[in-house]
């Protein structure tokens, strides 16, 4: 065997290994799609797709919770998302610009404080925060979930944007200052357009994490008409004595579609986001 053939053989092996691995990883998801179309009796069978697809699982699942349809739950979740993502993008970019571009006293101290906040387990804060929101009479509204997003939405996002802004040449700011641009003008007209990719990364992460942040939703929202998709799914699962797995799996499958669509549309931002913050620290 020549070296070339040997390399080819080795590459082939890697491909086979990776195909197998991808299949194993993705198998539960594929099974899920099939299972969402199955009857309860067919669920435990090894075949992926049912003999007769039960599209009624989707129709009945959508209205399975008495009094409200999943239209309501999806709308609720999107309302929370809209405010959360907007709040995070605006506030995190302002804060990041301040840290990355403005020289002020104790900026290093505050920046390390910001990084420290990322390490604090949320359990330590959750009880006093709940008490505060309780006293403000905000329980069973979306305010406890949305408001924190307007204060930077967590150190991670600010950190990501600071890293990104620091990579931009400072001459841009200087020449803009000479042209008579204010600091806010630099932020708005120069930096903001340039950090668009990073802002998209922030927006996607914020969207997906808010979507999955079951704990906050569980804590603060109690009436069914305000339920998010996640809470509705939990209610669905707990409220039935004879579980309609087909319906439940179909609804839960629908609930991941927004995240999946965003993931495929903006894949490169994802990978960049993880790699930047993970390594350039």
């Amino acid at each position: 065997m020549t070296t070339k053939e040997w390399i080819k053989q080795k590459q082939m092996n890697t491909h086979i290994l990776l195909v197998l691995l991808s299949l194993i990883m993705i198998y539960p998801v594929i099974w899920w799609i099939g299972a969402s179309l199955k009857t309860n009796a067919e669920l435990s069978l090894p075949n992926i797709f049912p003999s007769v697809p039960q599209w009624s699982n989707y129709v009945n699942g959508w209205t399975a919770i008495p009094g409200h349809t999943f239209t309501k739950f999806f709308t609720n979740t999107f309302v929370i998302e809209l405010f959360s993502v907007a709040g995070t993008v605006i506030s995190a970019s302002l804060i990041a610009f301040g840290f990355a571009r403005v020289k002020f006293k104790f900026s290093n101290l505050w920046f390390s404080m910001l990084l420290m906040t990322m390490m604090i387990p949320s359990q330590v804060l959750i009880i006093p925060q709940y008490v505060i929101f309780f006293k403000l009479d905000w329980i069973n509204t979306y305010l406890p979930i949305i408001t924190p997003h307007f204060f930077g939405g967590g150190g991670f996002f600010v950190f990501l944007l600071v890293q990104f802004i620091r990579g931009l040449p400072r001459e841009l700011d200087e020449s803009a200052t000479i042209d008579g641009c204010s600091t806010f003008g630099i932020y708005w007209h120069i930096i903001m357009p340039l950090i668009k990719p990073a802002l998209i990364t922030v927006a996607i992460y914020c969207f997906m994490w808010t979507w999955d942040d079951f704990f906050q939703q569980l804590l603060y929202i109690s009436s069914v008409d305000k339920f998010t998709v996640g809470l509705a799914l939990r209610l669905f699962m707990d409220s039935q004595s004879a579980v309609e797995w087909g319906q439940m799996l179909s609804m839960s499958l629908l609930s991941i579609i927004p995240s999946v669509v965003i993931f495929f549309l903006a894949q490169k931002y994802f990978v960049e986001g993880i790699a930047t913050t993970g390594l350039k620290g």
Binding site: T117, V158, T183
Partner: peptide, 28 residues
């Protein structure tokens, strides 16, 4: 003036830090 500008930009963080992190931590 520069100090003021800087603090103005990071003010969302500062408000969040004092009201939703530091104060709750002490209280906890």
């Amino acid at each position: 003036r520069q100090n003021l500008t800087g603090y103005l930009f990071i003010s969302p963080f500062l408000i969040g830090f004092f009201l939703l992190t530091l104060f709750p931590m002490m209280q906890s």
